[in-house]
Design a protein around this nucleic acid. Sequence first.
DNA 1: AACAATTTTGCAGGGTGTGCATATTTGCAT
DNA 2: ATGCAAATATGCACACCCTGCAAAATTGTT
Lengths: 234, 234
Amino acid sequence: MQDVLEKKAAESGLRERKKQATRAALAEAAVRLAAEHGAENVTVEAISEAAGVSPRTFFNYFDSRDDAFVMIDAESGARVRRGVLEAPADASPLEALRDAMAAELAEIEQRHEVWDLHAGVLHRSPHLLTRSLAAHLADELDLAEALAERIGAGPRSRCGCPSPARSASGDGQPRAVPDLYPRLLAAVGGAAVRVAVEYWCARQDRLAFTAVFRQVFAHLAAGLSVPPEETGRR
Amino acid sequence: MQDVLEKKAAESGLRERKKQATRAALAEAAVRLAAEHGAENVTVEAISEAAGVSPRTFFNYFDSRDDAFVMIDAESGARVRRGVLEAPADASPLEALRDAMAAELAEIEQRHEVWDLHAGVLHRSPHLLTRSLAAHLADELDLAEALAERIGAGPRSRCGCPSPARSASGDGQPRAVPDLYPRLLAAVGGAAVRVAVEYWCARQDRLAFTAVFRQVFAHLAAGLSVPPEETGRR
DNA sequence: AACAATTTTGCAGGGTGTGCATATTTGCAT
DNA sequence: ATGCAAATATGCACACCCTGCAAAATTGTT
């Protein structure tokens, strides 16, 4: 029956909603407990109890305990990708990437009530910070593909191959390798965001993040040449 | 007594040698067993037995089981840093970084007997690959400082803004925050190497790695502008 | 109301990582 | 050579992480 497939696709029913609610409850409980007692002192049992499920159920949602502290925004990567694809046609790839990432960071800013807690937790235990980076790294290939598609649609349409037509999960190995340039763009963009955030965290300038962010991408656009006398931009 | 300090510094005695030998034996046993049975199926007990020590002793040398698969080259970062500092005076920071990293990669090429095994292990279990990247990330701040020193000795000494003295939480390291530009340079350099290696691994061109590497840095020097008609590619 | 699919939960078990006390080894002084 | 103090290795106990497996409980459909 085709109904089965449709059901899978459009399953916005009570089941899926409840699952997402449980996942969110677990993640939020984890972050909240970690902010209070330190991430290392928060057990799976405590998290699941705070979320109202059994410890065993925790592992039905996260592959490891640390993932609960890290997997806060599963949709972030998808939003950046969409932003890249929807960028105006006259923007360079680097500009498209910069604006998409800036929009996503602005989006996060709005939810800083929870995000500040999260940032504090990551900052207090470097172990989790590296895991967070690793999680972002997983999205990098997807971002590279989006950039490749964006570039292909720009100056000239490349080969027809429209959609990679890959299934979401399973074994991701037999995957088309994106071209070198979009791959590099994605990796450098991620590194740029990381540096901007870390630098902005190191100094407590709450207001000047946008300036730091734009300056980083200005450096990139200038070929990382040595900055001319550095007019600080405040 | 000063004798104590001297002893600590010059302790090249039997003690220190034996410790390093044990550490090396554990790491090599770990990689060798992982190459044969897969990293996930290698227990701490098996590693320590192969190295001739007790399982408890393993954790006196590595904080976690995975570290035994990752901690192969602790000197790599130091070599790159020295290469940056010893670069010719007329080289741009990006060129200095590129050449230092190229030299280090060439160095590694020579020891490919062990490194190939190691690469195979990391390739077969992405979990360890991210840990390896995290380890490299730890060196990034040191590299940024080396780059800052190199830049400062180059064109001109820049504005003061010394150390924001940021020690955010707990017992953090009261470490001076490098300037934004060298920090970005270090991060982007690391990302560039990673992309070059991954791209070169994806296609089995054993010989063209240098070409890929130089092309990546050419992209960076060109401000990541869209490549003109893209020669190469296979 | 009955049924099938999905999710939750308990339970057992192996592996990881740590603290602590003890035994062994190493370097040095006598 | 012998004894001593520091460093290291080891055994043991224990908490925690994570995974199958099978039995409930829940949900959507007929």
